[in-house]
Nucleic acid binder design. Sequence first.
DNA 1: CTGTTAGCGCCTTCAT
DNA 2: ATGAAGGCGCTAACAG
Lengths: 321, 321
Amino acid sequence: MSRVLSGNGYAAAAVRERVLAAVRRIGYVPDANARTLRNRSSRSIGVLISDLRDPFYADLAAGVEQELRTAGYHMVLVNDNGQAHEEMRAVTEFLAMRVPGVILTPVSARAVKTLHQQGIRVVQADRRVSRRYGDAVLGANEAGAEMVTRHLLDLGHRRIGLVIDETRWTSGAGRLAGYHAAHQAAGVPADERLIARNAGFDPEAAGKATGRLLDEHPDLTAVFAANNVLAQGALQEIQRRGVAVPRQLSLAAYDDVPWMSMVRPSITTVSQHSVELGRRSARVLLDRLAEGDPDRGTTVLNLEPELVVRSSTAPPTRNPR
Amino acid sequence: MSRVLSGNGYAAAAVRERVLAAVRRIGYVPDANARTLRNRSSRSIGVLISDLRDPFYADLAAGVEQELRTAGYHMVLVNDNGQAHEEMRAVTEFLAMRVPGVILTPVSARAVKTLHQQGIRVVQADRRVSRRYGDAVLGANEAGAEMVTRHLLDLGHRRIGLVIDETRWTSGAGRLAGYHAAHQAAGVPADERLIARNAGFDPEAAGKATGRLLDEHPDLTAVFAANNVLAQGALQEIQRRGVAVPRQLSLAAYDDVPWMSMVRPSITTVSQHSVELGRRSARVLLDRLAEGDPDRGTTVLNLEPELVVRSSTAPPTRNPR
DNA sequence: CTGTTAGCGCCTTCAT
DNA sequence: ATGAAGGCGCTAACAG
């Protein structure tokens, strides 16, 4: 049959014309499922993130999608809400679809391992739960957190609160390490009591955690909120209490999202270039798919974050909080 | 073969056990492509939006995804950046995938028509370009815009600028109509020169358009920005000029995104409940898929928006702008 | 009750 | 240079 035409092969000009005309007339498009079945290779890539409503993840996904689309792939996007069982459910679905690759902000190592063992290329984005399996594209969390913390120390702050949600993933662990590293380098002892761990995953919880920290440590002169959601909660609590930023308290964040440059004072933060993080993740995956089957090594990219100094950080003053 | 086990059918307990054990051991998952080919029905739904980085669309997509996932479907998400040719490209891909349905924030009627003619269920979300084909889940744009405009008129404003990007889609057209309707109802003549049309699709362009409006009409006492991106640009320009809100100028927006409640003053706006808009779009599609093939009528939902009065709107004062 | 078979649409190979 | 056939993995129907 003249199906050969649609791709490559030999055909008489007359026949070709006739077939193409018919194709156009009825709007025929080859069945991708049949093609996948036959070729044992799909153009769908599984993408698994924590929360599409968080602009950090939305930007990441947007970067991934852009790059995939350009390369002729498409993105099957699943939100796992940071829950391991939702993540595994999605993994199973990706396996069923026989996707050639998956990009995910991983929750459990099991998800990554399962995919890898089924021969699916995996890119861990933003954080890494498995050192054994899959490539990774990460932000340099320790370097980033060290930068902001040093910025605060350089301004003269000595009592710096840290609001952080979790420290088991590489992202949180790195930021915590950076906070410590900067103190160490400056010869300033880090006070563990100034670290509000498990500050929660929504602004309300983060606000409460920030409030507790401020209550228990009136000598705090600065707060570093370790991601955009935490920063939102922290700022809301600070505004609610009528604490003046940066006069009474400096505030620094991680992740640069639009509101941080819109509020007054604008927020000093560390930009992770989240869209680029997504683009690079996709690139790593696409490169991996392009190369043959050999498992030669593991690619791990660490994208350098950038300190964006704005108006929410200033030298400490005598502050009657 | 005992594949029947995986679904329904009869099988001896012993055989079943053995098969299930093997399945678990090698981690076998049935091939969704083969299943789709055989059953001529896929569990993938195409979702086509303008811009994942715009929180309005991100929320919409999040709502869609949540509902689809709950129902056992998954979302193939494509960004068309508002470009008709990207939209058609995605439509072709969805056709190739033999998706049973597509949810899109449409750009061109051709996309909707093509899908419909190929027997694919279509839900137009947020705006409608085709009255003939496909269901639609929309915000009541005219009602929403009339609410904010009336709010401003009630406060005593008589010279209200409108910053809007386009008025050909139902969303823009509705908001423009609401602006006019409120003036009409209040017996206040609407001045066409106060309407900045084609204000652009990014904050920078919107800021410039707002600036021009302010320059040309020093008697403006309020500005209504017809979506969140326009509002961002308008606010940035207003801040840049050091114009005091709401003392010198009231600002109202459309779409409620997080920064609007974080900036000071917080922004009066119309919430479209964008996540719900997505959820309902998915529900309409799923219901349509559940019912048989008959084309009985067209479902059009108009979700009522909500006026959220905050601090950026106040009665006009003598304003030395 | 269980094993076999046909065919979904595509693409590659082989035969004309 | 073109037509025919087989098989990817699945499931519904049928034969045993």
